[in-house]
Amino acid sequence: MAVTFQHIPVMVAEVVAALAPRPGGRYIDATVGGGGHALAVLQAAQPGGRLLGIDADPAALVATADRLAEAGLREHAVLCHGSFADLAVIAGEAGFINVDGVLFDLGVSSYQLDTPERGFSFAADGPLDMRLDPTQGSTAADLVNTLSERELADIIFQYGEEHAARRIARAIVERRRTQLFQRTADLAAVITRVVGERRGRIHPATRTFQALRIAVNRELDRLAAALPQAVHLLAPGGRLAVISFHSLEDRIVKQFMRAEAEGATPRLVINTKKPLMAADDEVATNPRARSAKLRVATRIA
C-alpha cells in the first residue's frame, strides 16, 4: 500500500521569523519536502509573493503541490525536481535571482524514514536503498557490497562518528563473501551482533545507517557546494536560513557563515551567534525536532 508523503516541518515559526517574508518577496526553499515551510513562507509573503521549491524526491514535489493547491497558493510557486547542489542553475532557469530568502531544511523527512520501501530505516525491513532521489545514483546496497573494508570503515567513522566502525566494516565484508546485502533488517542484524544490543534510545545501527545515507546522497559535499550559490542568489538584505540535524552538517554551515562574515570582503552578517533550537513543546509533539539547529545570516552589499 502506498504511503502518503507526510512530514512535520520543524521550527516553522522560527523559520518565518528568520526569513521575515514581505509581500511580493521572492524565496527559495531548496529542500521543499512536504511543503510545510514553503506554505508558511508563501502565506507571509502575500500578496504577490513567489517561491521556488526544489527537492530531490519526486514524491515531495507532488505533496507540496497538493498542499499549496489546498491553500490556494499553487500558482505562486515553481516546483523543480533536482539537487540543491545545482541551486544556481535551477534558480536561474526558473528566474529566481536576487531573491529575498533561501531556506535549507537538511536531512530526511518523516515520510522517507517511515516508508520501508525507501530503505532509510532499520525499524522496518525494506530494500537497502537510502537514495533521496530514487530515480538515480548508487544505493546503500551498492556501497556495502562493493566498497573495500577500509572505505566502509572510513565512511562509518567519519559520517556516523561510530567508534566500532572498523569492526562493523570487517563484519560486513566477511558476511558478503557468502551472501550480498539486500535488506535493511539484514544489515542491521549484522551491526547489532558487532556493537551489541540497544543502549538507551539509540539503536546500535543508527550511526552506521546515518553514515551510509550521507555517503549515498553525498549530502555534505552537496551542502558545501550549495551554500555559496545561495549567498550569490540573495539580494542585499536577503536572508539565508539553514536547519541541520547533526553535528557534521551544522559544522559546515557554521564555518561557512563565519568565513563569509569575517573574510576580506564579507558577504554575510550572522544573525544567530548560537543556533536556535526547537522549543520544548514542539519537541514533545515532534521528537525529531530535538536535534534541529537553525542558523541564520543576512546578505550585505
Rank of each mutant, 00 (worst) to 15 (best):
Q210K: 06
P23H: 06
L87R: 07
A235R: 14
G53P: 00
G49V: 06
G119V: 02
H7G: 13
G25F: 01
N286E: 13
P21C: 03
A289D: 09
E149W: 12
L39I: 04
G25R: 00
I90C: 04
D221L: 13
L132G: 07
R131T: 03
P287H: 10
L248G: 03
A17K: 13
A171W: 08
A235F: 01
A65S: 15
E174K: 13
A224C: 13
G237M: 04
G72M: 05
Y159T: 01
T192P: 03
G196F: 11
V99F: 01
I8V: 15
V3A: 15
P134T: 00
L152Q: 11
T208P: 05
G238W: 01
I155A: 07
S138R: 15
V194D: 05
Q229W: 10
L113K: 10
I156A: 10
A185W: 01
A224K: 14
E282G: 14
Y27W: 06
S244Q: 01
E197L: 11
P21D: 03
L240P: 00
M1V: 13
R131Y: 11
R207M: 11
V253C: 06
Y111A: 07
A13V: 11
D86R: 14
A171N: 10
L19A: 09
T192C: 11
V216K: 08
I214Q: 05
H163R: 15
L132F: 14
A20G: 09
L106C: 09
R222I: 03
R201G: 06
R251A: 06
Q229P: 09
V242C: 09
S83I: 06
V62N: 11
P134M: 01
R67S: 02
V108N: 05
R50Y: 02
F104E: 00
E282H: 13
P9N: 08
S121G: 12
V296E: 07
A279R: 14
V102G: 08
N145I: 02
L180R: 15
A169V: 09
P204I: 13
G92M: 07
A226D: 04
G107S: 04
A85P: 00
R239I: 12
Q229R: 08
F122Y: 15
L143E: 11
T192G: 03
P228D: 04
A297S: 07
S291G: 00
D125F: 01
